[in-house]
Each structure stands twice: as C-alpha cells, then as structure tokens.
Nucleic acid binder design. Sequence first.
DNA 1: CTGAAAGCGCTTACAG
DNA 2: CTGAAAGCGCTTACAG
Lengths: 348, 348
Amino acid sequence: MKKVTLNDIAKKVGVSKTLVSLVVNGKARGYGISGQTCDKVMAAVRAYGYNPNQTARSLRTGMSNTLGLIVSDISNNFYASLARQLEDLAWELGYNMIIGSTDESVGKELKLLEIFRNRQVDGIILSSSQQNPTELENLVKSGFPLVLIDRYFPTVPIPSAVVNNKVGGELLAQHLLNQGFRNPVVLSLTPSYISSVAERVEGFVSVFENAAIHTEVHNIPFLCLVDMVEDFFTTRLHDKNMPDAVFAVNNNLATATLRACHVHNIVIPKDIALVCFDELPYFDFSKPSITSIRQPVAELCSVAFSLLQGQITNNGETKPGHVEMMPVELLVRESSTQISDNNGWRSP
Amino acid sequence: MKKVTLNDIAKKVGVSKTLVSLVVNGKARGYGISGQTCDKVMAAVRAYGYNPNQTARSLRTGMSNTLGLIVSDISNNFYASLARQLEDLAWELGYNMIIGSTDESVGKELKLLEIFRNRQVDGIILSSSQQNPTELENLVKSGFPLVLIDRYFPTVPIPSAVVNNKVGGELLAQHLLNQGFRNPVVLSLTPSYISSVAERVEGFVSVFENAAIHTEVHNIPFLCLVDMVEDFFTTRLHDKNMPDAVFAVNNNLATATLRACHVHNIVIPKDIALVCFDELPYFDFSKPSITSIRQPVAELCSVAFSLLQGQITNNGETKPGHVEMMPVELLVRESSTQISDNNGWRSP
DNA sequence: CTGAAAGCGCTTACAG
DNA sequence: CTGAAAGCGCTTACAG
C-alpha cells in the first residue's frame, strides 16, 4: 500500500513535479498557470487521492506546522483545558499540537524540549518546572519561538502569558480575614519556587502578615499529594492543632483537601474554611460550594498563542521579555463564609 | 542559528556521514566500528551539540516515532486521563503523542486522520464519532496501525479496546431497581449511535424492561449539554413529571445534572436518584457521594497500546477484528440509596 | 506558462 | 572497519 506521491501525479498528468506542487499549494495564480492545467492536475489529485507528505515538506521548508505543548500533567483539569483551547487556536491556523507531561521533572522537561525541537516544531508553549532556566533563555536568544504559560521567570526575559497570582492570593487572604479567620494554613506544592505557586503563597501570606498574623506554609510533594494532604490533617487532628482555614494553592490540592476532610469528618466551613486557586466544574454546586480564584483560561491561551505567533512570523517588534499578566477573579462561596445553620453549610 | 547537522560532524571529525550516523544510532557494534572512532565521533557530537533532525530521519525511514490520539474532547476528564496514560506508555517506547479533538464531528475526525497520516504518524489511537466507518476499515485493511479506544464497531473488524458498557448499564439499572426506583430517565448523548453510549443505554433499558418498566431516553446534543440538561429539568418540574432516578451516561452529563439539580433545588437522592458512568475525582466525597461506574482506564490504555504496538511491529498474528472488552466496576454511593435523615443525604 | 535541477538531513544497501 | 552514492518526497530558485 504505497502512498501516492507528487511524482506519481506528475507522471499521470504528464507534467512536471514543479507544476503539481505549485497547483497543490494554491500558487498556480501567482505563477500564471493556466486554468486548464490546474484542472487537469486537481482532477488527478482527487482521482488518485494524493496527499502531500508533510514530513518531506517539513524537511524542505523547515516548517512543520506543529506546535509543542509541555505541562506538568495533561490530565490535570487546568492543563487539559489549556491544551484544548490551544489546540483549537492552533487548528485555526493549520497547526497540530504535540504534547508532553513532565510531572514537574526538570530532566524530562529538558528532554521534551530537545525532542520537540529535533522534530522541527515551529514553536513551543511551556509551563516550566525549572528554577534557573538558562537553556530556555538561550533558546529564546537563538530566536526559537518559545512562550511560557502559567509560570514565568520574573528576572529572565522570555515571552510569557500568566495570571496575576499574587493578587489572587491577596484576594483570598483578605476575604478570609474579613470573614474572621485568624489561623490559616497554606497547602502549597513542591517545588515551591515555581512562580505561580510562589506568588500565590506570597500574596496570601503578606496580607495576613499585615494583620500581624503568621501563616504556616506546608509544601506537599507533587507526586504523593493525596496521601500527604490526608496525613497533614491526621497529624493536626491528633495534635489538636487545627487551622481555622486552609488555602489550597491549586485544584489538585483543593480536591485532596476536600477528600481528607471527608475522611476525617471535618465539616467545611463549620470546622474549617477552604479557599483555593483554580476553578473546577463542581465548585459552584458542591455542598458546600467552594470559594476559589478563577483564572481566565481562554484569555491566557489566546495571549500565549499570539505571543507565539508573533515570534513565528516575526511580525511587529520582538520583545523577548514581554510578560502579559492577566487579572483573576475571586468567587466567594460557602466554603469560606460563616455559617447559618446546623448542617455545616448553608441551605441552597 | 543553524542547527548542527550530521554532515557538520562528519567534516569536523574527518569521517563519512555513514560512520557518524552508525555511531549516533548505536549501530557501531554491529558494523565493527573501532572504539577509537566511536569515541572521536561521540566527542564531536557532544562538543557541537549535535541532535539528529527527526524530520529527515522520518522521511528516510518512513517512521516518525509519533502516535496520534483522536478523541472528542481532550479537556474531558476521561479523555485527558486516557491521554496521559497513553503518553506515558508511548514515552517508554520513544514515541511522542500528537492529539486532536473532534467535538464529535465526523468531518473533523476524518480530517485529523488524514493530517496525522500525512505527518507519517506510526499509528493512531482513535475514539471515533463515526457511524459507518468505511474509511477506517480501509485504513486497517491497508495495514495502517489503528486501534479504537472507548468506542468500537461491533460489525467492523478493527482492533479495539473498550469496556463492557452494556454490563455497566445493567449494573446501574439493577441497583436502582433493587433500591426501589421505578421511574428512571436516561440522559444520553447525541450522536446516540456511538457504541459506548448506545450500549450503556441498552443495558440499562433492558434491565428495566425485564421488570416491565419503560425507560425514557433523552438525547442531549454534545455541544450545549449544560443548558439542555437544565432545560430538561425545568420542563419536567413545570410539567410535574419528574423521574425518580436519572442515569447520566457520562461524566459531563453527571456534572450537568448535579448543576441542574442545584439550580432547581432538587435534592439528591431525596427527590431524585442519580447514577452515572465515569468516575470523577469528587464523586467519592461529594455530598451526596455519587454512584458511578468506574472504567479501568489504565488497563484500557495498556491494552489499546499493545494492540497498536502489535500492528506497528507486526509481531504475532494480526487479528484485525480483535476486540478487547474490559469489565467495569459499580461503585454504590449515597446518590442512589434510600435516605436515612432529613437532609436529603446520609450523614458521613 | 512550464520543466530540469538542486537540496533539505538523514539512512542504508553496496563496494572495497 | 570505512566511504561514496542513492534516495525518502517535497519546494524553490532558475532558466527558458
């Protein structure tokens, strides 16, 4: 089952490969190729089911019409949403997406970066787990189209699309303060240097600090998140050292916290308040509903995508250090509000 | 910033491209190339940071080390999980994954199939939205490695990895019957011919039919699912024609149903029971917890992957019609059990 | 308006 | 043990 090639078509029609290529690529007009010839060629293309071999085309043109997406875990709801939105944007412009998950491993991230580049992807959108991204900096300097999404490096000039995580943390803290909570704990992630995580924590902690309240920050390793969160509550219950509020810095930690509270019969918000980053589909109807920070996922993706497009087509001025920071939205719900009945949450 | 090529290295070292290629690909041994030569070559490879151009390699070998994954929506929790598991399996064997979402559009599915093939992917894992998959059949006949996942065609011989959806539907129906529910409604999906959906519904309906109970099946269009589910309940409430149980055939419908019930102040399971297919992270701790069918996602993926591998390497006998059907698990929870207190659900 | 030729960067018989 | 040559399937100056 050999595939039909350009050469096959050229022979069948009795013209040159050049001609067929030009017609197939819609450049007939530009070269003044006669309508008749065009029709003959296209008829053969259809008749024999010719499809250009993209690999050959890539090798020749140096463009692959492929974009790489690297995140920590594509099955995480947040990254899955990013992937879908980016895929759609890419599709509009004739790109396909190749994906890779790193599990926060810098080694795997670097490997994926290299592999994707060897595959001649036209650009990469990356949510990096690195701390000192010299390779990334060099990549950008070399002119390779790269944009960071969700996480960036404040001191390293790489085009980035992120949200204002610090303000998100502040909004949650201020809300908890207003509600009268005075003994919060932050459930955060290892590695804790990741900008999104660090800034959420920073914003949160600073607000309480201003109110002369110290916030304990608990870093949970990425890979055994569910168990570690449960252990945290087990220990605290045993030590009779429970916080009155928990800030889960991402959706996975929020879900893990809800599960742990369920296991330990901790009632939200009666026993403890919960606020978190990232909006999950069930947060607005669960009992209790969950106070969260909604990230503007669609905007994040379209900004990231146009930053990448800008680099690929090299249109406009190239600003290597352009960081686009989008606002977030606080959604106050039942999980963090003082309660009004004996069930531990408000009636609907 | 030109990339270093094989030729560059050959020149630097003063040997032929053949030699460098052999060494780089670890075939030095097989061709009895001297250790000295190997070392010299590898030193240069490292010194100049040479990485083989995969596109050129693909064109030459006809293999791309890329696998395609096509599903209806990569942001759906179920497909995102599939993607992640498959990505890991692929990674182990040196493959990368290119993904595409169809939104149940047959046209987009066919386009993606064609594009992926033109990109010389070594194989495709597909959750198809088609009804009459002649193209797929031809593809398989032509020897192209294709395996169906999640959805298959009972009468068309294409290697497939699916779960026993019929039994899943039966288990849920039998459970509801046992609990005393007699007036169920199925919230299903358009297109309703999709095997997974059709078999879930079939299993469910047949059990109630055996008990002389007619089950109404409501097909919800894929794209406006949330609104349509809410409309469904609005209408039924208005008509005072509420079912006593709902079977949501997938995770999105389950979430939409929960949201609609929340909006309409319908209390589960007091006012209505809910059972569904697909396990979501919050189903076991939500209030109420949700009765669901858990699919063996990991097994599904590893079976699909080895079916694909079998075709790619052409090892063992090629059984075009091999359908692997895996068992599912019923998880009985609060959303479908008769209640014991006045809150509408059991206390933890 | 159309074709012959070069070349993208590899791998792989083939020859020695 | 090593190299020259062909060729994967395209695109694109270049020539006419």
